[in-house]
């Protein structure tokens, strides 16, 4: 179905695997498009309640495939046409999106991980702001998300110095939610994702939306958004189920509605 990625749904989790292992899953135009399409598919699919992005082989994603870069290339247009729509698709996705970072995430590969809601790292994983080493600027949302995740000062240091950040450094910085030993990583990611997939999906979507909007609005507007979100969540069957389960002293079974 896709040339550059694999797409499979297991236990309500859509696994999207970048699949150019011999190139450390470097981005080509086709991969930008495949990724956008598959995220859209997972967003719309009723059976999917969590999305995992990961990489086949040693790397997560090494960024733009430099084999495709030539002197005539308009870097701005490449971003507008290919990367920005892909990042927007993730940004607008209502379901939880996990970057399951199995190896190096460099350049736009790091941007991709930053655009996700969770970053679950293998201890072999690393982040590299590789752009500066070829005289370029972190793109595809990188400079938008990074300071929000780790603060301005550290973001600036990483973006300009371009030094490799190990999995454990990433955890200290707040860039990784979890770091797992390599041999446990895949199972841990699966159980984390399946746990998310069994939670009240509508409420998760509202939390994501309001947290993101909190970056650019006033307290007054944020309070109004709380009220609207709570009205919507209050109408879901998952809310009723949660309350009933609490009263009946049992575990709730959420349908994601």
């Amino acid at each position: 179905m896709y040339e550059t990625i694999k797409y499979e749904v297991i236990n309500r989790v859509a696994w999207i695997t970048l699949n150019r292992p011999d190139k450390l899953n470097a981005f080509t135009a086709q991969m930008n498009k495949d990724l956008k399409q598959s995220i859209k598919l997972a967003s719309r699919s009723m059976e999917v309640r969590c999305i995992v992005l990961t990489g086949e082989g040693r790397g997560f994603c090494s960024g733009q495939d430099l084999a495709g870069v030539n002197e005539d290339m308009d870097h701005g247009e490449v971003l507008r046409a290919l990367y920005n729509p892909m990042i927007m698709e993730i940004h607008q996705c209502e379901k939880p999106v996990i970057a399951a970072v199995n190896g190096v995430a460099a350049g736009a590969g790091m941007s991709l991980a930053l655009a996700c809601d969770f970053r679950l790292l293998s201890e072999r994983a690393s982040f590299v702001e590789a752009f500066i080493h070829v005289g370029l600027v972190p793109d595809a949302g990188n400079l938008y998300y990074l300071p929000k995740l780790i603060g301005h000062a550290k973001a600036l240091e990483l973006a300009i110095m371009g030094e490799k950040v190990s999995a454990f450094q990433a955890e200290e910085l707040g860039l990784a939610n979890k770091v797992y030993p390599e041999e446990l990583w895949r199972d841990e990611v699966a159980s984390y994702a399946e746990r998310l997939a069994s939670m009240p999906t509508a409420a998760i979507s509202l939390i994501k939306k309001n947290l993101k909007s909190s970056w650019n609005i006033t307290l007054e507007d944020s309070l109004e958004k709380d009220a609207q979100a709570q009205r919507i969540a209050g109408l879901t069957s998952d809310h009723k189920e949660g309350v009933n389960a609490f009263i009946e002293k049992r575990k709730p079974v959420f349908q994601g509605r």
Binding site: L206, K209, Q228, A229, R231, I232, L235
Partner: peptide, 9 residues
Amino acid sequence: IFAKEILME
């Protein structure tokens, strides 16, 4: 602007 779920309401 409202979330679409509560626009009509």
